[in-house]
């Protein structure tokens, strides 16, 4: 678990959540002791989900505060992405982590960012979480690098992205992204 030092310390992430359209867990990772039990974690997830559900976080990442935490979030289809930090954290760092997570997942799921696809590739999502933050400390924020790190581990034949090189995968993904933005 991460240790939270004084304000001068390194930026720290308290948790990263990926929830479905009913607020249920797809994959979550907690790095702080603020929520010691599973029920405390579930309660936090429930309140943050209820609080943000009515907002529109589909084009730009949104932000809110809850229990002295800052939460940035972004929704796509039936997947809800959240990144939580302490209330003196730089909001833009949290947003960068969120964006990194989101981009990486988009690449890994080959643009099918939805709950079923995520569950079917849960191993990738979990590895992705592992590559973004280690014990609260930001490891990497660039979505394509994160996706690249995760994808290199899947050399076995049936795995996704195996036929493409990373740069190809990125190119297609970028293309998809731009198209979806222009739409």
């Amino acid at each position: 678990m991460a240790t939270f030092l004084s304000q001068e310390a390194c930026p720290t992430i308290k948790n990263i959540l990926l929830l479905d359209s009913e607020g249920k867990r797809v994959a979550v990772k907690y790095y702080s002791d603020d929520w010691p039990t599973n029920s405390a974690k579930l309660a936090f997830e429930k309140s943050i989900f209820t609080k943000t559900q009515k907002t529109n976080a589909r084009t730009e990442a949104e932000i809110t505060m809850l229990e002295n935490n800052i939460i940035v979030y972004k929704f796509v289809q039936d997947l809800y992405f959240f990144v939580t930090g302490g209330d003196d954290e730089n909001e833009l760092i949290l947003a960068t982590v969120l964006q990194g997570f989101f981009d990486a997942v988009t690449l890994l799921l080959r643009n099918n960012v939805e709950q079923r696809e995520a569950l079917e590739n849960l191993d990738l999502i979990l590895l992705c979480l592992d590559e973004i933050v280690d014990g609260g400390i930001v490891l990497e924020t660039d979505g394509s690098i994160i996706a690249g790190k995760v994808a290199t581990h899947n050399m076995d034949d049936g795995a996704p992205l195996s036929e493409q090189t990373i740069s190809q995968a990125l190119a297609t993904a970028r293309e998809h992204l731009t198209r979806s933005l222009l739409r």
């Binding site: 730009e60 932000i63 940035v72 909001e91 833009l92 949290l94």
Partner: peptide, 8 residues
């Protein structure tokens, strides 16, 4: 245009 920036 970014809510996070406005909020910060």
């Amino acid at each position: 245009s970014k809510p996070v920036l406005r909020f910060a």
